[in-house]
Write a protein that binds this DNA or RNA. Structure first.
Length: 872
RNA sequence: AGGCGCGUAGCUCAGUUGGUUAGAGCGCUACUUUGACAUGGUAGAGGUCGACGGUUCAAGUCCGUCCGCGCCUACCA
């Protein structure tokens, strides 16, 4: 057996262990179809990024669940992969081209895509290496990428199908346009932020009159595209203004005054300018009233040829100049400060410009109804449940999804337009010609939103299109684990698409994790500079410590503040485990016969009972995704029971050097601890398992203890509690009286109860060891000798004869304090027990417990008082 | 504007369907280098559970109001 180093040094074995697992082929689910199966697909990280703490959290939880299921005997599949991140990746490569003094437009679409693929080949692997570093037990043989041929084919299949069904359409609508990314965005990709702005009140002269109306706007530059002024029909001024014509300042265009109920009479002047081509609201009004739609900006945020003298100017520059011109013309009434929500591009933070544009959309309503139903009727369970409501709200108010992006990197829309007959062809395979026979067909230039392909992920990755064996075996997946921030982006859309195309839910459960924050609870962001990198934590504390810290803080429904101090603590925990194993190895004979039998000691039976109990608790917690509870249970058990009590109890026996059945129990119980902890701390547990005698090839495929405890076990556990209480009390007496920890004492215990005395006699050696006593006497009652420290635990009285009291007053105070505590409790209990309502209405069990408790505490107080009198 | 969540020890958080004496980790104090581990051991201090009111025999837990903090959604120009 290898000797272990004195301290835990994770860097020395993590890589090696991962390779060991991978080489063993244990990440792939066994072929055996009779096994219960478990499957989970990764929320694909995008290839341009690096994995942050949020990923570390999510993938840690994925791995914990997967390893747990695998050890529970499931054919467990965790399918890994990445997504192509349309805008992000395109931007990265464009930057690269820029530094080479060229551009995507210069090199053309085909060359550009080659460059992106090159980039993907070169850097895409970083992510998966990092994912491996987390200890992720993904099946790499099934790794997928959203732009793989197979997945791309699925995207096309789905698109064509939705198109033919009329659920995908193309049309000219207002969309969110990012002038910097130069593409349309979906509503979700727009972050609206409260922004301090101005509200400009502008006079619009009435035609053929000296009179005018005043409108209020936050974006004066859009007025160049105004095609009406609107008023609420109930407004007193409406009858007067009805059918009036207004002369639009600067442009001189004559535009009508219209009545529409959308106008908020309380806001601004109660009159609103209508710019159908640059405001979603106005767009609706415009369509209702048949207004002209005049676009006054181009795709880069500059004013266009419809903007008259302002053509070519940046939209914000134009705003300034237009305000000036209005002022000069005495048309500016006033400028108020005004805070309002302004849309920003999620990717680049540029202010989004709502723009009229021809885009592709998914008609979501029919899909949303089915998707909502799946959660309502319980086919999908969302955990924590609170998110269900938010999911319903979104589904109820869903709007059509703009899926076209003016990018080159992504799934190109499989639609062709004929130059000759104008026919639109939508096919899975590239058509050679139009139906009219013309070969002058052009494919749509745009690509699809990356989330479109992500929405298909659970079934596209498993081979839905070809109805593969994997698909039949592993779909629907068991659970989806991800952050609550992408519930709409991704979770909702996967449910819509999964139901639509497979007829089944994509997953049966959704576990939404919290967000990882910094130590002060702030959201981590690069701009704030408060990010913590997983790589840094792993090298400093070890991967297992990071994983454990994340798991033990993973309470469903709450965010996770990250404290480096905690990482340190869990590194110490790993060290504790390391040294406990080191201790066991040091005490193991060369060739231990694991078949040894014999009578089990108290400590043996106790640790076995507790292991059964703990395993049952851990399994129960895991099945409810209570990672924190499972981790916390194990933390406490290993450190404060296995090490503090069990190992301490068996130490004296081990020095005898003779292997007995107890040695076997020691080894087996340590192995159980390693198994229980393995999903949480896979590296260190595997490393240690390999150092111990073992029969299964690796811990990763060892059987997870199912747990359970019988009545005899419960009995032992209760007895141990008594022993612990006596020991703790003695230690406290020693400590409070400054008895040198090295000094051996004579311990006297007394009880009126035969059973207690018998038990104490049986535990004679254990008690001496743990209290550092050189002798133990058990009797019926105290002899009453002077010069003793006294204590009470239940029915057991404790005395420690000492002749050299350091401070007799201190001892009196100590007992005095205990009496006070008892008094307080007696008062409380008396109050309850003298209350008739309590006696009548509370359950009998509760009353009986209170009565028993009262008897116990009163007895305790009396004993303490006796002790105090004797001391005096 | 609407919706949601949070407020428990110095810090970060647990606390099941209301029921003994409200827990943990870190930090703190004292003692302790005993042959697994000082990344250790033993003991201890520390909380009127944000405030007020209500329901109940019984409230950290359920209800209401208020205060403080955070988040999400939304087309008030």
């Amino acid at each position: 057996m290898d000797q272990l180093s004195r301290t835990y040094e994770p860097q020395e074995f993590e890589k090696r262990i991962y390779q060991f697992w991978e080489a063993g082929g244990w990440f792939a689910p066994p072929e055996d179809e009779s096994l219960a199966r478990f499957s989970i697909v990764i929320p694909p990280p995008n290839i341009t990024g690096s994995l942050h703490m949020g990923h570390a959290l999510q993938y840690t939880l994925h791995d914990i669940v997967t390893r747990w299921k695998r050890m529970r005997g499931h054919a467990a599949l965790w399918l890994p992969g990445t997504d192509h991140a349309g805008i992000g990746t395109q931007m990265v490569v464009e930057r690269q081209l820029h530094s080479e003094k060229t551009s995507r437009k210069e090199i053309g679409r085909e060359k550009f895509l080659e460059r992106v693929w090159q980039w993907k080949e070169q850097y895409g692997g970083r992510i998966t290496q990092q994912l491996r570093g987390f200890g992720s037990s993904c099946d790499w043989s099934r790794e997928r990428f959203t732009m793989d041929p197979g997945l791309s084919r699925t995207v096309r299949t789905v698109f064509v199908s939705l198109f033919k069904e009329g659920l995908i359409y193309r049309g000219e609508y207002i969309v969110n346009w990012c002038p910097r990314c130069q593409t349309a965005l979906s509503d979700l990709e727009v972050i609206s932020r409260e922004t301090a702005g101005k509200l400009y009140h502008v006079k619009y002269p009435l035609k053929g009159s000296r009179d005018y109306v005043v409108v209020a706007t936050t974006r004066p530059e859009t007025m160049l595209g105004d095609t009406a002024v609107a008023i609420h029909p109930d407004d007193d001024r409406a009858s007067r203004l009805k059918d009036s014509v207004v002369v639009l300042p600067i442009m001189g265009r004559e535009i009508p005054v219209i009545e529409d109920e959308f106008v908020d009479r309380e806001f601004g002047t109660g009159l609103v300018k209508v710019t159908p081509a640059h405001d979603p609201n106005d767009f609706e009004v415009g369509r209702r009233h048949g207004l002209a739609e005049i676009t006054v900006m181009d795709g880069t945020g500059k004013m266009n040829e419809n903007a008259g003298a302002y053509a070519g100017k940046d939209r914000f520059q134009a705003r300034k100049e237009i305000v000036q011109e209005l002022r000069k013309k005495k048309l500016l009434v006033k400028i108020d400060d005004h805070t309002h929500a302004v849309g920003h591009c999620q990717r680049c933070d540029t202010i989004v410009e709502p723009t009229l544009s021809k885009q592709w959309f998914v008609r979501t309503k029919p899909l949303a109804d089915a998707a909502k139903a799946a959660v309502v009727d319980g086919r999908i369970r969302i955990i924590p449940e609170i998110w269900s409501k938010i999911y319903y709200d979104w589904m109820d108010n869903i709007r059509d999804w703009c899926i076209s992006r003016q990018l080159w990197w992504g799934h190109r829309i499989p639609v062709w337009y004929c130059d000759d007959c104008g026919e639109v062809t939508c096919e899975v395979t590239d058509p050679p010609a139009c139906r009219c026979g013309s070969t002058r067909i052009r494919q749509d230039d745009d690509v699809l939103d990356t989330w479109f392909s992500s929405a298909l992920w659970p079934f596209s990755t498993l081979g839905w299109r070809e109805q593969s064996r994997d698909f039949r075996r592993f779909y629907p997946t068991d659970v989806l684990i991800t952050g609550y921030d992408i519930i709409f982006f991704w979770v909702a859309r996967m449910i819509m698409m999964g139901l639509k195309f497979t007829g089944e839910v994509p997953f049966r459960e959704v576990f939404l994790t919290g967000l990882v924050r910094d130590a002060s609870g702030q959201k981590m962001s690069k701009s704030k500079g408060n990010t913590i990198e997983p790589d840094q934590l792993m090298s400093e504390y070890g991967t297992d410590a990071m994983r454990f810290a994340l798991a033990i803080q993973s309470v469903p429904g709450t965010d996770i503040p990250l404290h480096p101090g905690r990482m340190k603590g869990y590194r110490a925990f790993a060290n504790k485990l390391w040294n406990a194993t080191r201790f066991v190895i040091m005490n193991l004979p060369e060739d231990l016969d694991e078949e040894l039998t014999g009578e089990l000691t108290f400590a043996d039976r106790w640790i076995e009972a507790r292991l059964g109990q703990v395993a049952a608790q851990v399994n129960a917690a895991m099945s409810l995704y209570k990672f924190y509870e499972a981790a916390d249970t194990l933390y406490h058990f290993l450190w404060h029971e296995f090490c503090d009590w069990y190992i301490e109890l068996i130490k004296p026996r081990l020095t005898s050097g003779q292997a007995t059945v107890s040695t076997v129990v020691l080894l087996k119980s340590l192995r159980s601890v390693l198994k229980l902890l393995h999903p949480f701390m896979p590296y260190v547990t595997e490393e240690l398992y390999q150092k111990l005698p073992h029969c299964e090839p690796a811990l990763i495929v060892a059987a997870y203890p199912p747990g359970g405890v019988d009545q005899a076990g419960e009995q032992i556990i209760a007895e141990m509690k008594t022993l612990q209480a006596v020991v703790t009390s003695v230690r406290n007496m020693r400590s409070e009286n400054s008895i040198d920890p090295a000094r051996k004492i004579d311990l006297i215990l007394a009880s009126q109860l035969d059973a207690s005395r018998a038990f104490l006699e049986q535990r004679h050696d254990d008690l001496c060891t743990l209290t550092r006593s050189k002798s133990l006497t058990v009797g019926r009652a105290h002899a009453g000798e002077k010069g003793c420290l006294r204590g009470v635990v239940g029915d057991i009285e404790i005395s420690i004869p000492i002749t050299d009291f350091a401070d007799i007053e201190a001892e009196k105070n100590r007992i005095q304090k205990e009496i006070q505590k008892a008094e307080q409790e007696i008062t409380n209990l008396n109050r309850r027990l003298s209350n008739h309502d309590f006696l009548e209405k509370a359950p009998e069990k509760v009353v009986r417990e209170a009565e028993q408790r009262q008897k116990d505490v009163v007895a305790r107080r009396e004993k303490l008082e006796t002790l105090l009198r004797r001391l005096a």
